[in-house]
């Protein structure tokens, strides 16, 4: 039950963030989508032994967070919530790769470096995905998908799923509450009720889908999904996208922390 209200709260939280009106929010969804994908591709392509190459990528989330006025604490919490899974898989790296290397005069097992690299990558990629949603919202993302030529009916279906998730989460929540009240002390649903509990819900969901279809037909739906013109792509959007993509390319191929380090330590001869 608690995870249901949590999921509901989570979705509403992101929806609310997406409804803000800042510089970043106003940008064309495609510009943000493209920047996000470029960022992800660049981060993920960084070599697994490399840590310093990943660090300049932190500029992206930090700057967009500030520009979009996203609340840091709750967002970071959401990012960290995903990390345990990655830790679960990555923690085995130090076990399997005990090759010792010297790092800053300290002997480190190479496995730890790859682990750290995965950990940072996870943080960065998760941040990028959440930023995309929190600054764009599901509606505008859907319109971006349409502009990209994704079949409209798929977009409509995606939109419907998003629309009805909160309705069904609430419904499931009510059912679980009703179940718990009459089955105190049970941790989950007893096997005898497995089929009927979820099955009833399916039947009701089918009925609801039929009503929704009826409502769509009443307003002229004929299998074609017609949408508005959508936002126009202007120079600001292009500039935003171009600047980030360029930044990612530079950062990906030029070792900025290395150069910076050399500059301060006088390593360049």
């Amino acid at each position: 039950m608690s995870n249901i209200s949590e999921a509901l709260y989570n979705m509403r939280f992101m929806d609310d963030l997406a409804r803000r009106n800042t510089l970043v929010h106003r940008l064309h969804p495609l510009a943000k989508l493209a920047s996000t994908l470029a960022f992800l591709a660049a981060v993920v392509s960084v070599e697994r032994y490399e840590i310093s190459g990943l660090l300049p990528f932190f500029f992206y989330p930090v700057i967009v967070f500030a520009l979009a006025e996203l609340p840091i604490k709750p967002m970071v919490k959401r990012i960290l919530m995903v990390e345990p899974f990655i830790i679960g898989i990555g923690i085995l790296n130090p076990l399997f790769d005990q090759h010792i290397v010297m790092l800053g005069g300290v002997a480190v097992s190479r496995g730890w470096i790859t682990f750290l690299s995965i950990f940072i990558k996870c943080g960065l990629t998760v941040a990028a995905a959440l930023i995309l949603l929190a600054t764009t919202g599901m509606d505008r993302l859907a319109s971006a998908l349409r502009m990209l030529g994704i079949p409209k009916l798929f977009v409509l279906q995606l939109t419907l799923t998003y629309r009805y998730i909160s309705v069904l989460l609430e419904e499931v929540g009510r059912i679980l509450n009703a179940y718990a009240l009459r089955a105190p002390g049970q941790k989950g649903i007893h096997w005898k009720s497995w089929g009927s509990l979820a099955g009833q819900l399916i039947l009701r969901t089918f009925e609801r889908a039929q009503s929704v279809y009826g409502a769509m037909c009443l307003r002229g739906f004929d299998g074609e999904y017609r949408t508005g013109d959508g936002q126009r792509f202007c120079t600001t959007d292009l500039a935003y996208m171009a600047v980030w993509v360029m930044f990612f390319i530079i950062v990906r191929f030029v070792d900025i922390p290395g150069l910076l380090g050399l500059v301060v330590t006088g390593g360049i001869k």
């Binding site: 599901m138 509606d139 859907a142 939109t159 419907l160 998003y162 629309r163 009805y164 309705v167 609801r208 009503s211 929704v212 009826g214 409502a215 769509m216 949408t227 508005g228």
Partner: peptide, 13 residues
Amino acid sequence: NPDDQLFMTTVYE
């Protein structure tokens, strides 16, 4: 049930 009728993601849409 208005939930059956309002199937888009914003009131305007």
